[in-house]
Design a protein around this nucleic acid. Sequence first.
DNA 1: GTTTATTTTTAGGTATGACTAAAATATATT
DNA 2: AATATATTTTAGTCATACCTAAAAATAAAC
Lengths: 220, 220
Amino acid sequence: MNLTPAEENYLKGIYSLGVSRNGDISTNELAALLQTKPASVTDMLKKLAKKGMITYVKYQGVSVTTAGKKKALEITRRRKLWEVFLVEKLRLQWDELTELSDALEHVSSPLLLQRLDEYLGYPKFDPFGDPIPNEHGEMSENPRVAILDLSVEQSGKIIGVNDNSSSFLKYLDKAGIYIGAKILVLDKVDFDGSMELLIDNKRRQFISKEVAANILSMVY
Amino acid sequence: MNLTPAEENYLKGIYSLGVSRNGDISTNELAALLQTKPASVTDMLKKLAKKGMITYVKYQGVSVTTAGKKKALEITRRRKLWEVFLVEKLRLQWDELTELSDALEHVSSPLLLQRLDEYLGYPKFDPFGDPIPNEHGEMSENPRVAILDLSVEQSGKIIGVNDNSSSFLKYLDKAGIYIGAKILVLDKVDFDGSMELLIDNKRRQFISKEVAANILSMVY
DNA sequence: GTTTATTTTTAGGTATGACTAAAATATATT
DNA sequence: AATATATTTTAGTCATACCTAAAAATAAAC
């Protein structure tokens, strides 16, 4: 069953709200997430239910079906592969991705997706450190750790962030912290929890406890 | 002035019909080109005229304004850069491009475009051998020659086609003829005008006069 | 220079995806 | 349990972009 770009956006939203949750998703939640009005959400839920992507009972909330989950993972895969392309190949920065990947995630064909995946070297994680579903919707475990939890002398590779607000991402760019950067913990300051990092064996950078808690890394 | 994807498609169509022509473009022509109905064309012409992209007088045909030409060249630039990406980086074939570039040509930001251009090595021609406008809308001269006009022993590089119908492109793929291929004219048969080529110093291939007239090359 | 044929436009309708305002249902409060 | 509040749905609009069928304008034929 084929979905329009708008339908894809709703499905993706429903799925993403559903993963971190047991119960059903409410109309208001979805409206807030998708920056639209509850009435528009209701309209769309009917369409998605008719296409078999979600289970929807009036006034009772909504959840994705097996088919819907599969589709949502496919859309997510498309988006994340394009994001890897934008960052790794075109060297765009984290805060420049959203608008473009919103558009690109709806562009695909099976062949394009396969070739893009191959071209990018079958990446397992997106630029934010989140796992990319493979063709079968399976995802790798992500052994990421907040760098706050690293010890002095430990080194790692930045693979993501917890907070992807524009202001935080801009701060990171300014501080020389980017996806793929190698870091070494030079020091941890006891009284305020701040840390001193060595980035790419070159740049020394102090970061606060709060920042350290929001940057994720793979430990070597 | 910003255009919707549909408006961009119409503008591109009007512009492309206009370049090889002195007079104005007719509604029927545009409808045929865009696979739509004349009534839909009329609707859209009003919108484009209101946005200052075209000069439109009822019943009198249509032509692009200076602003419209600039916009059309920008859209063309986006499309062609994406096409180069699809062919050079993802190794898609000519007949697989149209659908994807129809979608991709509407995806862009100034930064994306600049990075894509840089990443592709500032290409001057698209996979069909047509020139790519630069940021200022300027295009290189294309010194292409039908391989029918090459002499025996002359060699060149395939840079485009005159006929980009799906059936022709599929024939070329089957014959091992693709963009970027090196060719050497081994023989020209007098009585039917057919040619024998050596492709990439490896494959020998006979092609008819008609085919040779529709393949364009750069002469070394 | 009429008449005929073609082209183009208008008028009115459809589907998508959004909206507001009002009604229906569900949840909280007392 | 009855009322008040919050949520969700319906009903009715609007804009985009398409369509068909009919009317208007232009071009061609005689």
